[in-house]
Amino acid sequence: MEWITSLFNGTNLALAGAAFAVFMAGTGSARGVGIAGEAAAGVLTEDPNKFGQTLLLQALPGTQGIYGLIIGFLILIKIGIVGGTPVELTTIQGFSLFITGLPIGVVGFTSGQAQGRAAAATMGIIAKRPEELGKAMMYPAIVETYAVLALLASFLMWLGIAV
């Protein structure tokens, strides 16, 4: 059982939290941007002049990945892996930092895809009524609210954990 304790030491748990935030939110965004991109390509075959507008819509589900990266990076800064000397963490501290990565990781994963689908659906608006870009942007943007809230929750947790 020695290996379990050494494997699940504080630093590794914190790293797992950072990794979770980055890869879950990143996967959500990657899928979302992908879904939106497929629809955008369809619009573009009809009218190549709509590249800018469709690109804007495609970029919307990309923010979750960035939020995940933010939390991941903040965890790395806190444990001294980036820009400092590594800190010795207790298992409890490490586990707390792991939990910090959960909100943005999970919500980033789900909302990234949901936002991607909303963005893909609004591509139809751009195809038929490109002047309504402002309205079209709002539907995917409303999905993003929950990623923003999750980012906030993760951040407040991160802030409260003393190492």
Partner: peptide
Amino acid sequence: SRLLALSLATAV
């Protein structure tokens, strides 16, 4: 509260 969250995103 998104005002805070997005402000943090830029800064981080």
